[in-house]
């Protein structure tokens, strides 16, 4: 069994831990990013993105595995992970609604869209529907202010959104 190849017991145990936690596919993708930067840890945000892409969010276990692989302490990596609002450290729904709450969308009435979403989905900002279908998050300016109010669902941008549009838009996401 390969873990008996003796480099030193501690090293072995840690290596196994990583192999258990990150998939081969994830490691291949992370290695590609590591090769592009002069310092290994500089790829840690890419590593978080890769694992989140595969798993939907970054659990404590995922975080520890990535930290190990990036040769960082879990605390150090978590300080990075929690800084960026699109690294999810809690489970999220299958679809993520990002409603712009910045200034032009405020002027153009995003609050009415929010009220509608709250009533329809029975969740507030930061929450996920009980069936795991939607997570609703506020988001800073989406950069399409001449078509405000705007929102994104997953990778799709919706502009000039009215309350009447919302139900039809949501129906497209299961």
């Amino acid at each position: 069994m390969f873990w008996q190849i003796s480099i030193g017991e501690n090293v072995q145990v840690r290596l196994l831990f990583v192999l258990n936690m990150l998939t081969a596919e994830e490691i291949t993708e992370i290695d590609h990013e590591i090769a592009l930067v002069p310092i290994r840890r500089a790829a840690c945000i890419e590593a978080l993105k890769i694992v989140q892409q595969h798993r939907g969010w970054i659990s404590d276990e995922s975080l520890r595995a990535i930290a190990e692989y990036m040769q960082m302490s879990p605390e150090e990596l978590d300080s990075v992970a929690t800084f960026y609002n699109l690294v999810f450290r809690k489970p999220v729904g299958r679809n993520i609604i990002l409603l712009c709450d910045s200034i032009t969308c405020y002027v153009m009435g995003y609050e009415k869209l929010y009220e509608h979403l709250k009533a329809k989905l029975r969740i507030s900002f930061g929450e996920t529907t009980a069936d795991g279908r939607f997570t609703l998050l506020p988001n800073a300016c989406l950069g399409t202010c001449d078509h405000a109010p705007a929102l994104m669902i997953n990778n799709e941008l919706y502009r000039n959104v009215t309350r009447e549009d919302l139900d039809g838009i949501l129906d497209g996401y299961k």
């Binding site: 310092i39 500089a42 840690c44 945000i45 978080l48 960026y84 609002n85």
Partner: peptide
């Protein structure tokens, strides 16, 4: 040339914060 897509935060647009983000740090 490399394309780096961020993971949020307005402060990344500040040029020195952007550099920290590219180095895998808090921005």
């Amino acid at each position: 040339m490399y394309l780096h897509t961020g993971v949020g935060r307005y402060i990344c647009g500040e040029e020195t914060a952007l550099l920290n983000a590219l180095e895998g740090k808090r921005a």
